[in-house]
Simulated assay, not measured.
Amino acid sequence: MSDNFPPPPPEQPQPEHLSPAGAPPAQPSPWAAPPGPPQKQRTGLIVTLAVGGGLVVAGAVVALVHAAMSSVQDSIALPPRSEAPYSEPYEEEPYEEEPTATEPDAKKDVTIISCTRDPQIGWQSAKVKVVNGSSTTASYTIMMEFLDEDGVKVAEGGAGVVALEPGESAVRKAQGVGEVPRGTTCRISDIWRTPSDRSEG
């Protein structure tokens, strides 16, 4: 015998299983997943629930804020208006001493005896004579105004006398401050006379 074996026969192609003519088509499995549209409906339901929940939460927040604002307004409410009748404040009239009939007017006690302008610096000054016409020792304060040719005040000054006995006289200089034009005049603006003690002088 020979070691050579004859070759195996070639494989025959298997016939395809075809459905016989007129047979109904294969039915899908009842456990298969449903087609696409139901999946889309489920997604829309989830979105709707999320939006609705957000609106409910927003409404609750607005309600809480409104309640908080109402409580704050109630806590800062203004006190009730008083029903007490209005009364105007009482003002006391200032006390004024009645002038003594025997005391002469203080303006009569002071006289301007000179009114000059310093040629070097242009400052005006006035000399006044004070005669105590009262019945008691008195001190005087004299205020002076310096007026230009149009009557406008251009400077002012003052002088004082302390503890002048009744009937006595004194001369004082009221010095103005600041340069004034030529032709400036002098005028007494105010005089105060107050009772005093000789020891004040």
Rank of each mutant, 00 (worst) to 15 (best):
M1E: 12
M1T: 12
N4W: 10
F5M: 15
P7K: 08
P7T: 12
P7C: 07
P8I: 07
P9H: 04
P10Y: 03
E11K: 13
E11G: 10
E11T: 14
E16Q: 09
E16M: 06
P20Q: 11
P20I: 04
A21T: 12
G22A: 02
A23R: 09
P28E: 02
S29G: 08
A32I: 10
P34T: 05
P35D: 12
P35H: 04
P37E: 04
P37S: 05
P37D: 02
Q41I: 06
L45W: 09
I46T: 12
L49C: 08
G53P: 02
G53D: 01
G54E: 07
G54I: 14
V57N: 06
G59E: 04
G59H: 03
G59S: 11
A63D: 09
L64Q: 11
L64I: 11
L64R: 10
M69Q: 13
M69K: 13
S70H: 08
S70K: 12
S70M: 12
S71A: 15
S71M: 14
V72K: 14
D74H: 14
S75T: 07
S75R: 10
A77M: 11
P79T: 07
R81T: 15
R81A: 14
R81Q: 09
S82C: 05
A84W: 04
A84C: 04
E88Y: 14
E88K: 15
P89V: 11
Y90C: 04
E92R: 15
P94I: 06
Y95K: 00
P99A: 05
T100A: 15
T102I: 08
E103Q: 15
E103R: 13
D105F: 04
K107R: 12
K108Y: 08
V110M: 02
T111D: 04
S114I: 05
C115W: 05
T116I: 13
D118Q: 05
Q120N: 13
G122N: 03
W123G: 08
W123S: 13
A126W: 01
K129E: 15
V130W: 00
V131K: 10
G133W: 02
G133C: 03
S135G: 09
T136N: 05
A138H: 01
A138V: 03
Y140D: 01
E145W: 06
L147M: 11
D148C: 02
D150W: 08
G151A: 06
K153W: 03
V154K: 09
V154E: 08
A155S: 07
A155W: 00
E156Y: 06
G158Q: 05
L164G: 00
L164F: 03
L164C: 00
G167E: 03
V171C: 08
V171I: 11
V171F: 03
K173P: 06
K173S: 14
Q175D: 06
G176I: 02
G178S: 08
E179G: 09
V180E: 01
P181I: 04
R182Y: 13
C186E: 02
C186G: 01
R187T: 11
S189T: 10
D190W: 15
I191D: 00
I191R: 00
P195S: 11
S196D: 00
S196P: 00
D197L: 14
S199A: 12
S199R: 10
E200M: 14
G201Q: 05
